[in-house]
Amino acid sequence: MTTANTNAIERYRNNFLKEVEANVEEGHMVKMCMQCGVCAGSCPLGPAWQHSPQKIFMMIRAGKRDEVLGSDSMFMCTSCYNCMVRCPRQLPITHIMHGLANYAHRLGLAPKGQPTRDFATLFWNNAIKKGRVNELMLTLRHYFRGGLVSGIKEALGMQSVGLGLFMAKRLNPMEIFGGHGVKDLKGFHAIIAKAKEIEDRKKGFTA
């Protein structure tokens, strides 16, 4: 268990809603939900997940901390914004789902090996490294995340795709060696480091 998690449990005791309000992006809006179910019916991959946004918001109010932060549902959000434009209470549902995923991820409670969690992490790290996304490295890393053998299998399965893109000049093999990037990388990294420092302090990720 991470220290941040122990601290949070200690600090908010039995009030998970308060914890969410304080630490999760747009978490203060959770209490506005009237449980109408529109969001639940709007998710494109809805049938594939366990907890719809509506259910998650209900569970937050019911104090089901472990179930919520251990859920893989937030990672199934495709950011389609269907729920957000339909919600009669105008909850920024997409952002809350993202915020919860981030919070669970940072506390180390999000499900291990959840593919979108891993991909999202890869994506961010890839983008941050050079300031711009290196699509080839992103693709390769994604396929090889499970180790060499399964990676080769998956990559072979998708090779028609990669090869096609390559032939159509839309994937650059030279990107392996570097590729696009921001010139003032030092400054770019300093901004992120500072922003992270401020956010971590506020959300209790640092002591």
């Binding site: 529109v38 019916g41 339909r86």
Partner: peptide, 19 residues
């Protein structure tokens, strides 16, 4: 609260989606 309606193109019936 119904999330959305789509139309069944064959018979014109509205199909209600939700949870």
């Amino acid at each position: 609260k119904v999330a959305k309606i789509v139309e069944n193109a064959e018979n014109g019936n509205p199909v209600l989606h939700g949870v």
